[in-house]
């Protein structure tokens, strides 16, 4: 994943902290922060599909939103084609933002209910002045709806989101990003709100579009089986940090971090294909990112924790080629 040449996206030591609200009496206390993303570094090359996986509260969505420019990093840099997106002139920034697009989890809430499908898909064309004439705008919208499988496109022009099913709405959301000719698409749980029977149709569509338009994807997922099928790389996040990173097949076949091993063991499946051993069900949930455990952040829930884990923070080290893990089990001076 770390190429010599400039990657499409490089995230360097990204931190996104939110200050907690202070009142009159707590004003003079030490200021506390919700450390949603706390030192994340990775690169995505053109054509890659990277999946960020982990439980709710791991910081996956915040990472995605920071890359899309919704949140400003507290620390660290986000380089798109080598340009720091938060440290460039306004015109260039707008141009870059167009090339990084978001698809949200809930197509029932992400589409404006008072706008027709034509207006929703066409809005970005107006904002970025991508059409020279109204006729051209119609052509672009028609083409976009066609390419996401909403056929015949004219039938959808004057309909409203509530008239469509969840799967169709997510297709509209995809069409409205396509018209902007994005290079990087960040999809936050794009199918988790859609009926299981229709999910694969959306995923297949996204994969076809990737080949057709040369897109690069960052998926935010919690299901590792799906992540493996569609990604080239997987990054497992826990409490604001990446704990394991590597080629998708390696991460699922030879998970190194105890957390990854647990996540893989609980993927629900009626058919026991690829399931080795017992389910590892972790106790509790991700702790509050205000009070982060000392040492390894995962140690209070880790089935393999030993005494050193609560004292020393592990580093992300390369254990196999291109396969990184942040766990003291793999550090040399384990002692």
């Amino acid at each position: 994943m770390y190429n010599e040449e400039i990657p499409l996206l490089r995230v360097e030591n990204l931190k996104v902290w939110f200050p907690t609200r202070t009142g009159f009496f707590t004003m003079f206390r030490e200021k506390k922060y919700v450390r949603a993303v706390d030192g994340v570094t990775f690169s995505v090359n053109k054509g890659d599909v990277l999946s960020l996986v982990g439980e709710s509260g791991a910081g996956k969505t915040t990472t995605g939103l920071a890359i899309a420019g919704v949140y400003k990093p507290t620390e660290g840099r986000i380089l798109f084609k080598g340009v720091d997106i938060n440290n460039t002139d306004k015109k260039k920034a707008k141009e870059l933002r167009r090339k990084i697009q978001l698809i949200f989890q809930d197509p029932f809430e992400s589409l404006p209910p008072h706008m027709t499908i034509f207006d929703i898909v066409g809005e970005g064309i107006d904002i970025h002045k991508l059409a020279d004439s109204p006729q051209e705008k119609i052509e672009i919208v028609t083409e976009a709806l066609k390419s996401v499988g909403l056929i015949p496109p004219e039938d959808f022009f004057n309909r409203y989101p509530h008239e469509l099913s969840g799967g169709q709405r997510q297709r509209v959301a995809i069409a409205s990003t396509l018209v902007l000719h994005p290079e990087l698409v960040i999809a936050d749980e794009p199918v988790s709100m859609i009926d299981v029977s229709l999910r694969w149709g959306i995923i297949k569509l996204m994969m076809n579009l990737k080949h057709r338009y040369g897109l690069t994807y960052i998926f935010i997922l919690h299901n590792l089986a799906l992540a493996r099928c569609i990604s080239t790389h997987i990054a497992v996040m826990y409490l604001g940090q990446i704990v394991e990173l590597g080629p998708a097949n390696d991460v699922v076949e030879r998970p190194l971090h105890p957390y990854t091993q647990a996540l893989i063991s609980v993927v629900p499946s009626l058919r026991k294909v690829g399931r080795k051993g017992k389910k590892i069900i972790l106790k509790g949930e991700i702790p509050n990112p205000i009070d982060i455990p000392p040492g390894c952040r995962f140690h209070p829930r880790c089935p393999c924790a030993f005494d050193k884990c609560s004292k020393e923070e592990p580093q992300l080290i390369e254990v196999e080629p291109k396969h990184y893990v942040k766990c003291l089990l793999y550090s040399k001076n384990k002692g």
Binding site: S197, W200, G201, R228, C229, N249, I264, S269
Partner: peptide, 23 residues
Amino acid sequence: MGLLNAVPTLDGSITGIRSIPGF
């Protein structure tokens, strides 16, 4: 059969996965 085949499994093969067409 359709419901069983609609979901990817951990083995990473995507040949068997099919969504059920239509609504």
